[in-house]
Design a protein around this nucleic acid. Structure first.
Lengths: 225, 225
DNA sequence: AAATATAGTTATTGTTTGATAACTTAGTTC
DNA sequence: GAACTAAGTTATCAAACAATAACTATATTT
C-alpha cells in the first residue's frame, strides 16, 4: 500500500485489484473524503486519494449517486449490535450502570468522526435514511430505556401503560445531549473539557435523576393513591 | 416584487435598487438558499431567485467568499438579547420557571430553520465562528444557569467555588438535547411528537431533576457534614 | 438639460465537475 | 502459450461554476 506510490509513473507494473476489493476500497476512501468535505467532494479528488485515475471509479460505480448510496448503506446499515439490547435488558444490574454501559458501547459507534459527520451531512439533505434511523433509535433505544425506567422506578410497565410522548421526548433530550457531545468534538472540532467516559457517566446520572422527575408528574391510571 | 417578473424581457423599465438595499436583499436570499442547499449553492441560482443576472451579485460582493462571510455575520452576530440574561437572573422566580422562560425565548432563535441549518453547515467546516459561538453559550448560558442552580439548591455560589467541568458538561447535555430537538425538526425534517413548548417544559423539568443528582455527588469543600 | 455616477446587463473566460469512448495490459482459462 | 476477460489508462466532452470585461440605461448632481 505504501510501495505503490513509488512506482508512480510506471503503469506497466501497477498491481490490479479484484473488483470486489477495489469497490470496498473506494467506498472506504469515499467515507473518509465525504465525512470531511461533504458529498459534493469530487470523484477526481477521490481517485487521487486512491492513486488511480478518475474513470476507474466509474468502472465500479455507474454514477456518483450510486457511490454515495453505497456510502450511506455502509455507514447506516452497519448491523445493530444485539449485545446493546442485552445490556439494557439485564435487570440484575441497576439502571444507572446499565445506561452507562449501553452508552459506552453505543457512543463508540456514533462518536466515530466519520459516522457523526456523515450522519449530519446526510441529515441536512432530509434523506429518508435519516428518518429511518431516527425511528430505529426511538424504538430500539429510547423505547427500551423508557420501559426499563418504568420497571426500575416501580411504575406500570410499558406493556400495561404505553410510554407517553413526553417520556419519549424527555429521553430524546438526553440522547440528543450525548449525541451533541460528539458533535462538538468530532463535527465542530471543539474538544470538550471532560472525556467521553465521564460524559457518559454524567448522562446515566442525569437520565436517572431527570426521568424520575418526569415520571413523578405523569398520572398513571392504575396506581393506588 | 411580484410585478418585475412580468416585464422580464423589457430591461428598459427595470427598477434599480440602492446598493445598500440590494446588498441586504442578496444576503437575505443567500441565507435562504444556503440554509437549504449549503454554501456550495451557486451564485447563478442565487441570482435567479432574486430576478437579477449572476454578475449583478459581483457588483456588491467581490467574491463568493465575501458573500458567505456576510451570511455568517448576519446569522451569528445577530445581537445577544440582554433580556435573556435578565430572565435567568430573576431570583423572585423559581429556577424551573426561569429555565422554561429562558429556553422559550432562546429556542425562538435557534429553532429558526435558517439558523440551525446554517449553524450545522458552517459547523461541519470547523470554522472559527462556531468555536466562538460555543464559547459564548458556555459563558453566557451554561455558566449563568450553573450559577443559579447552585444558589437555588443551597450550594456554595459559583464565586466561592467555581463551576466544575462536570457541572458545565452536564448542562451541555441538556442544552445539546434541546438543540437536537430543533435539529430533528428543522434539519432532518422529522416533526417530533410533542411541540416545542412542551419540549422546553420537559427540559426545564429534567434540568432541575438531573442537576440535583449531579450536584449531590460533588464534594464541596466548605460544606458542613 | 447636460454631465456624472453607478446598478445592472450581455458576453465570455478558465476551471472544475460527472461522465463516456476507445485503448492497454494484467490476470485467468482452456 | 494463445485466447479471453476485465481492471485500469488516456483523451475528451458538455454542463456548471466563479469571476471579469465591456457595455447600457437609470438615477442623481450640477
Amino acid at each position: 500500500m505504501a510501495k505503490r506510490k513509488v512506482k508512480k509513473a510506471d503503469t506497466r507494473s501497477r498491481q490490479r485489484m479484484s473488483a470486489e476489493d477495489r469497490k470496498e476500497q473506494i467506498v472506504a476512501a469515499a467515507i473518509r473524503l465525504f465525512s470531511e468535505h461533504g458529498f459534493e467532494s469530487s470523484t477526481h479528488d477521490l481517485a487521487k486519494s486512491l492513486g488511480v485515475t478518475q474513470p476507474a471509479i466509474y468502472r465500479h460505480f455507474p454514477t456518483k449517486d450510486d457511490l454515495v448510496n453505497a456510502v450511506y448503506e455502509r455507514v447506516f446499515l452497519s448491523e445493530w449490535r444485539s449485545s446493546w439490547d442485552l445490556i439494557l435488558a439485564d435487570r440484575n444490574v441497576n439502571i444507572e450502570d446499565r445506561l452507562s454501559a449501553f452508552y459506552t458501547e453505543y457512543t463508540r459507534r456514533i462518536f466515530e468522526t466519520d459516522w457523526s459527520r456523515i450522519y449530519l451531512f446526510s441529515g441536512l439533505k432530509r434523506l429518508q435514511i435519516n428518518r429511518w434511523y431516527v425511528a430505529l433509535v426511538e424504538e430500539r433505544v429510547l423505547g427500551r430505556i423508557g420501559a426499563e425506567l418504568r420497571i426500575a422506578f416501580g411504575y406500570p410497565s410499558a406493556e400495561e401503560v404505553p410510554l407517553t410522548a413526553e417520556e419519549i421526548e424527555a429521553l430524546w433530550l438526553f440522547h440528543g445531549g450525548i449525541f451533541y457531545y460528539g458533535v462538538r468534538d468530532r463535527v465542530y472540532g471543539i474538544t470538550p473539557k471532560v472525556d467521553s467516559a465521564t460524559a457518559v457517566e454524567l448522562l446515566a446520572r442525569v437520565v436517572v435523576g431527570g426521568m424520575r422527575t418526569v415520571l413523578e408528574r405523569i398520572k398513571f391510571p392504575a396506581m393506588a393513591g
